[in-house]
């Protein structure tokens, strides 16, 4: 598939959050302020790309040759968790400014289902390495878009008069549903 089409598809049509419902925890947890959501979004992009690249190699050279496809989930979790820990230490030592902006989010998404989901999706779709990495980047951007949009809405919600029973997470979930519905308008645009 054309890279451009894939980019649009991953961001709008098959948005990892709003169309595939992966990674809802940070979607609700980190969407109270725009600044936080942007930081979280970049962290997801960063980790998703690295995790996809790593798990792709593991899948191709370890799991497939030994016929261990059924261990995919547990192996991926292990690898991603170890990788994120390592990246966190590496950033703290080598790139402190980046650590300052991403650092607090990295442990949060160690085994985030969006990250794991992207790593597994590219295996199911049987992409080659370059496409897989590109797809993970695009899906991460889609995650960030949904997160930032949500944060914008919730910043407004904070000053709106919401019925008491709906305050906080409840109205956040309602909003998530509405956003998801809105993104369904893109369905069918690209396969």
């Amino acid at each position: 598939m054309d890279y451009f089409l894939m980019f649009i598809s991953a961001i709008f049509v098959n948005n990892i959050l709003l169309a595939q419902y992966l990674g809802n925890c940070p979607y609700l947890g980190c969407s109270k302020e725009k600044g936080v959501s942007i930081g979280m979004g970049f962290a997801v992009v960063f980790v998703a790309v690295m995790a996809t690249a790593f798990t792709f190699i593991i899948q191709k050279y370890i799991l497939v040759p030994y016929d261990l496809g059924y261990l995919q989930t547990i192996v991926f979790i292990l690898v991603i968790a170890g990788l994120v820990q390592f990246v966190e230490m590496f950033l703290k030592r080598m790139v402190p400014p980046l650590y300052k902006s991403l650092g607090i989010f990295l442990p949060l998404i160690t085994t985030n289902c969006a990250v794991l989901g992207i790593a597994i999706l590219v295996q199911r779709k049987e992409y080659d390495f370059a496409t897989a990495v590109f797809y993970s980047f695009a899906a991460g951007m889609g995650f960030m878009l949904a997160l930032v949009l949500m944060a914008g809405i919730r910043e407004r919600l904070a000053i709106a008069r919401v019925p008491k029973a709906f305050e906080g997470t409840a109205i956040g979930l309602v909003m998530a549903g509405l956003m998801s519905l809105a993104f369904f308008a893109f369905k069918g645009m690209i396969a």
């Binding site: 799991l63 016929d67 192996v75 292990l78 690898v79 230490m89 590496f90 030592r93």
Partner: peptide
Amino acid sequence: MNSVLVLFGLGLVTSVVLSVASVVLRV
């Protein structure tokens, strides 16, 4: 055997890398 070995190996590699990193990259 393969599955046990692969998981054990991956776990071992990860833990070794992390423990080395925690010493080398300590802030």
